[in-house]
Design a protein around this nucleic acid. Structure first.
Lengths: 344, 344
DNA sequence: CTGTTAGCGCTTTCAT
DNA sequence: ATGAAAGCGCTAACAG
């Protein structure tokens, strides 16, 4: 067999026009609501469209209008459990007005991201959303000269560019504070990649909360991971090796928290009886870990929705209004009051 | 502020031609390697391209060639933890030859999928990959008359269409068999949605394994869920309510297994000491549950890779060769030998 | 080997 | 209100 039985050439606008006995421009006008058209012609055209099952060619339209009705989305990894919700939010918001998102993986390196950006520009996307990329600010600003950009996970202003930033520092502070309020004062932290801005901010919040509470920051209680499960597991083992005691643990994202939780399980250390554990992100499955994970909820879906709406406005030449996106602690069962002497 | 500082109109092929002192066709030929061109001209064109930082307009090219260099991908939910790996596989395989995937969510309903399919066709994608859709076979076959299609999760043959099917029945059999071999004979099953083919097959495998082993199938030991965590939790509670004893549990996917695992945890039923638990999919996080989950590994990434390669071949008018994609049991720590009298 | 000439399917002046 | 014509950026015969 030789799989061929290709398309009986799709119907074109011209055929519709011919069939309806009008000119192509009239059909176009009706399709786009560009101008008033006599009712009789409109009817005829609509009939022709239905009979022929005509579907406008979005590509051709894009060429003619200079708009492709598509937006690029650069992610670190399209398979990341966190960003998937965001992608969904983007899809939902842009699809509503006929836009299609083009998702590409940046693989977490600035070089790859630059390459992907070029690819998106070659496809003439009308705008691009960069989800916490590694690409540097100046490059972003320069790309913004050619097309609208919205970027998450950093604060950056510029013509044709908006950034959506969540207050990770404050959330890191709150997470740590939650632990402090439960009476813990030996609180370890598994941070994310050193170069990751979100990770840096969460760590800063952790330090500030400790300092504010008069608890000295013990650097030996801080380990670093890669934002993946393995990283959390490794970091926890490292923490354990230092033989420094701690009764609570703040992990910079849920994936690493899962890894840490397993490492704890292996050592027979119970959660939350022996150590309280708080994560960050609130992945869908964090509600179903044993015990369900206390964590900082990131509005992943809403983030996507807001980013999608923002890029649409930018494409429209308007300046988007960015609603506040709160980070919120979700207390579940992996944290509890410290047994023995209480804090403060 | 009014975000506008739009693109200084991208360089076109014609400008390159002018600058290099050749005709547009020559530039095109060089770009596409369509014909031999004198070395001197090639050099001149290459210089012009570099100087102008020219990027071919993929859209215009698509219009002219009748190929858009993009493939559509219909998923149930682009945020599903299972299919994300698959999407990545698709992206990796098609991006290699300059193709871009267009991911759209079918929301698990035939109607939505049909709408998405129309959308993809309006964008003139060169082919589409349907990941276990709800859309019926005849519709699929009919769409295949207009463009190549590869579909997963069902067996279907046709011109311009190939299906990639994994042997879920056998895997369901193997999973149950694993439990039987550990000495269990009161084995419950949480199945997926009744209308889902994969779910049906896994259930059939479960029945066959039991029957083959001379263990009567007890319908009260079978509950149904929605393939999400909640569904697993609910189904397990339902199972518990019937007060029928079981010492092992085969759950039709990992997400529901997580839910069931939490329900067990809440009742103080230990895994694997009191009940052995085996899931299906091998989601990345199943390696990090407590205890790590025994499950059936689905080659999600490879599935995407194979699907991507297949659609490319189909687009090329060739018939793809489909490698076997094995489903394999991964024994971890959530299953163990039944205590007390052993089976057989 | 290379330039000229038509389109690809649609939108958009510009007339009428 | 509507048709004719030009053009979006590129490719692909068709002639040389």
């Amino acid at each position: 067999m030789d799989g061929d039985g290709r398309s009986p050439s799709p119907v074109t606008l011209e055929e519709v026009a011919r069939r309806a006995g009008v000119s192509p421009s009239t059909v176009s006008r009706i399709l786009n609501g560009t101008a008033r058209v006599r009712e009789s012609k409109r009817k005829a055209v609509e009939r022709a469209i239905a009979e022929l099952d005509y579907r406008p060619n979005v590509i051709a339209r894009g060429l003619a209008r200079g708009r492709t009705m598509s937006v690029g989305v650069i992610t670190q990894d399209i398979a990341s459990p966190f960003y998937n919700e965001t992608l969904k939010g983007i899809e939902d918001s842009v699809a509503k007005v006929g836009y299609a998102p083009l998702f590409v993986s940046g693989h977490g390196t600035a070089a790859k991201e630059a390459e992907r950006m070029a690819l998106l520009m070659a496809r003439r996307v009308d705008g691009v959303i960069v989800l916490t990329g590694m690409i540097d600010d100046p490059s972003l600003l320069s790309h913004a000269q050619r097309l609208p950009i919205v970027v998450t996970g950093r604060t950056l202003q510029g013509p044709n560019l908006v950034s959506i930033h969540l207050d990770n520092e404050q959330a890191g502070y709150d997470a740590t504070r939650h632990l402090l309020e439960l009476g813990h004062n030996r609180i370890a932290h598994i941070a994310g990649p050193v170069l990751n801005v979100d990770a840096q901010e969460r760590l800063a919040g952790y330090r500030r909360a400790l300092t504010d509470a008069g608890v000295p920051v013990d650097e030996r209680l801080i380990a670093f991971g890669d934002f993946h499960e393995t990283g959390g597991l490794l970091a926890l083992n490292q923490l354990l090796e230092t033989r420094i005691n701690f009764t609570a643990l703040f992990v910079a994202n849920d994936q690493m928290a899962y890894g840490a939780r397993l490492a704890l399980y292996r050592k027979g250390i119970r959660v939350p009886e022996d150590v309280s554990l708080i994560g960050f992100d609130d992945l869908p499955s964090s509600l179903y870990t044993t015990p369900p994970l206390t964590t900082v909820r990131q509005p992943a879906y809403d983030l996507g929705k807001v980013a999608g709406e923002a890029i649409l406005r930018l494409i429209d030449g308007q300046s988007p209004s960015l609603p506040e996106l709160p980070l919120q602690i979700i207390v579940r069962e992996s944290t509890q009051r410290r047994r023995g002497q209480s804090f403060g």
